Amino acid sequence: MEQAAQLLRLARVRAAVNSGEARQLREAAHLSIGEVARACGVDQSTVWRWERGARKPRGNGALAYGELIDSLRSRLRPAVEFQRSLGLLPENSETPGAATPEASGERINKSTAK
Rank of each mutant, 00 (worst) to 15 (best):
A28M: 03
A29M: 02
H30A: 15
H30M: 07
H30N: 13
H30K: 15
S32L: 01
I33A: 10
G34P: 02
E35T: 13
V36A: 08
V36N: 01
A39C: 07
A39E: 15
C40G: 02
G41A: 09
V42M: 08
D43R: 05
S45M: 11
T46A: 13
V47Y: 03
W48V: 07
W48Q: 03
R49Y: 09
W50S: 08
W50P: 07
E51K: 10
G53S: 12
G53F: 09
G53N: 10
K56R: 15
K56L: 13
G59M: 09
N60F: 09
A62L: 06
L63I: 02
L63Y: 06
A64G: 01
Y65A: 08
G66T: 06
E67Q: 14
E67H: 10
L68A: 07
I69A: 02
D70L: 07
D70F: 01
D70Q: 12
S71E: 14
S71F: 10
R73K: 13
R73V: 00
R73L: 02
R73Q: 08
L76P: 04
L76Y: 00
R77Q: 14
A79Q: 15
F82D: 12
F82I: 09
F82R: 14
Q83I: 07
S85K: 05
S85I: 04
G87F: 03
L88E: 09
L88N: 10
L89G: 07
N92S: 12
E94Y: 03
P96I: 05
P96Q: 06
G97D: 08
